[in-house]
Design a protein around this nucleic acid. Sequence first.
RNA 1: GCCCAGGUGGCGAAAUUGGUAGACGCAAGGGACUUAAAAUCCCUCGGAGCUAAAACUCCAUGCCGGUUCGAUUCCGGCCCUGGGCACCA
Length: 761
Amino acid sequence: MDKPYQPEQLEIQWQTQWENKKRYRVTENVQQKKFYCLSMLPYPSGHLHMGHVRNYTIGDVISRYQRLLGKNVLQPMGWDAFGLPAENAALQHKIPPAKWTHENIAYMKDQLKRLGFSYDWDREVTTCNPDYYRWEQWFFIKLFEKGLVYKKNAIVNWDPVDKTVLANEQVIDGKGWRSGALVEQREIPQWFLKITHYADELLQDLNTLTGWPEQVRTMQKNWIGKSEGVLIKFKVNSSRDSITVFTTRADTIDGVSFIAVSPQHPFAQKLALKNKSLQDFIDQCKNVSTAEAAQAVLEKKGIDTGLQVIHPLTKKTIPVWIANYVLMDYGTGAVMGVPFSDERDREFAEIYHLPILEHGEIDLQKIIALLVKKRVAERKTQFRLRDWGVSRQRYWGTPIPIINCKKCGTVPVPEKDLPVLLPSDMNTPDEFYKTSCPSCGKSAMREKDTFDTFIESSWYYARYTSPHQDHAMLDGRADYWLPVDQYIGGIEHAVLHLLYARFFHKLMRDLKLIHSDEPFTNLLTQGMVLKDGAKMSKSLGNTVDPKTLIDKYGADTVRLFIIFAAPPELGLEWSDAGVDGASRFLKRLWTFAHTFPTITKPISADKARQQLHEILSQIQFDYERKQFNTVVSGAMKILNLLAESDKTIQIEGLSILLRILFPITPHICAELWQASKLGDDIEKTSWPLVDKSALESTTQQFIVQINGKMRGSIVAVKDASEDVLQKAIYADPNLQKFIDGKQLRKIIVVPNKLVNLVMGE
RNA sequence: GCCCAGGUGGCGAAAUUGGUAGACGCAAGGGACUUAAAAUCCCUCGGAGCUAAAACUCCAUGCCGGUUCGAUUCCGGCCCUGGGCACCA
């Protein structure tokens, strides 16, 4: 009877049993309702951190809850195994990226298993393995054949000392993180995916994603940034050339006092060939990171080209400037400067003493019609979204399956030659990339670049449905499981990853690999785990290692604490003391289930049952809205209630309690279910139902407010009328002083809840 | 700079989204048990005022204003913190 709670022993015993029985392996079953629950796959950085623990605990709670509701639940796990940190580790510790990555995966997999997550490990995906990335290469070639892929020059951060391309993250205050050298923007040829071809559909379909947080939909909408405007042509007065600008505010055209072009604008480049001061200015603009944030906070700088254009309506001449705040990537890379109504233009005009011309309110549609008629403008829909550059000048990634032939140009690797394997040596000599052109047979070179790792994470959710399939990227099983019913991951992925995955889903649909429009029906964006108000990170030295906690308290306690501490979407402040509290609750539960203490003065059975089912009803509501922290509050309330109830309530209560806690703390609940002789296997039982008859009562408490302030309460019959309530209030001695000598102006009744008397003098 | 969130006791939070502000837990203080400690159990616990004590009164959900019988919740303006900004994942 006095068996102590020993979490480690019992948890490992249950985990072994689940693994041996392959309890969480699933197959397609059309008779049963499916539920695909997916957590964002981790990057194998070394150890699990608390953010992972939180993400995967939330996913496991949802999966186990859905299983108890009778669904066929798929919950897979895998590894986003390509990426920059493996290369950094290789440089630092002289370990090959592959070795480092696979060792990390082995360690982290053990940690996941020790937390008791109900994954179907038979579907594990590791993105750096050729059986995964070969299908990515195959898919890229399909897109190439469909014309959805192209190559063009694009700008990267160049470290002139280390002679390497830098990620934005590796540029600190405009300098290379290792060399400290001033970075330079450099143009190199790169591959692009035509995501802009899907811009309209990606925007429209946001309306169908009703299971997504509104804020994520808004962020994506703004990111795609559809705007209706016009292209306006400004003729150069000294030549036949013209400069075209894009604007959504054609109605401000009277206020144009200058034209500004980006330093990368072809016009600027051309003029600079013959003008050293322009060239110097353009070169100076290159010493900045390509990150938009870095460019947006730059001090505004510009240079007059000396060129003039003609205003299409007033025919006055206007100067053309090169300005560092004009982005080449948006619109035409040239803007009309309207300092009167545009803040950035005004700032620029004030620095360089350009005129600020007032303009009146003109009807936008009328002025567009006029400009179109005069043939100086045409309507244009512009997106902020740019095509996706997928080339990376890095070793540890999926090789781009393209061969560059001097005669035939870019030629895709034939399907039969896939996969193009990544060389095992990080410093592979150029000789290795020599090959022959599949088209003409002459000697040619393979692409050395690899893919952006966002490509791997854009379709892994689909690959889980077709494990071990080595004849196709996906098979018929994909349509059984997809779309994902519940996706869980950090809010930091609100735009990039989630937009790319939506894009890939539509591409796979158009290649007839799947037959749905969107990948993720419901999305939960989990908040970060913080300590002392800051994100837990190695650089801040404020990490808490899950392993130490699991060793000390057991997996159930860690899971319970992380669920209880905050609602899933909020940031979670780490607290060591809070973990003690969670552990204490499980010990109390353990002791209670083993003793069923006799209560000398139990509360009445009717009252106890009513409370029990009221709490259960709230818990049910909270599970559905995924506010799991208050599920735990409810569970604690139930245990508190059972500690002052009689035996029958205790038995019914424990049976409910173990089932509602099982998704959160599965090991202890499975154990106590057996120990309490409630049944054989808790996972084969059904979800507890609220007994509505227990909730019924004939009387009801009403809050009494006088002029909106709470002054007391009365008890009246359920659904009592206004008259009855008013009489009861006037008869209540405690409320007399608020009523005496005052006139009742109005009475407001919220049924079965509240009465507000509006009194005057 | 632009886009999106968040701000409630000493702390994490709750308030079924316009109707009792602070459920549940942590920390703290007091007590019981113990030779002692740990563990466990019981009590108190937003602030101020008034009380012998209770009752009671006022203030309080980042700041300022508005709508309403009634605002943590809705509207307008500010401040602070966090996430993203296309090569971190």
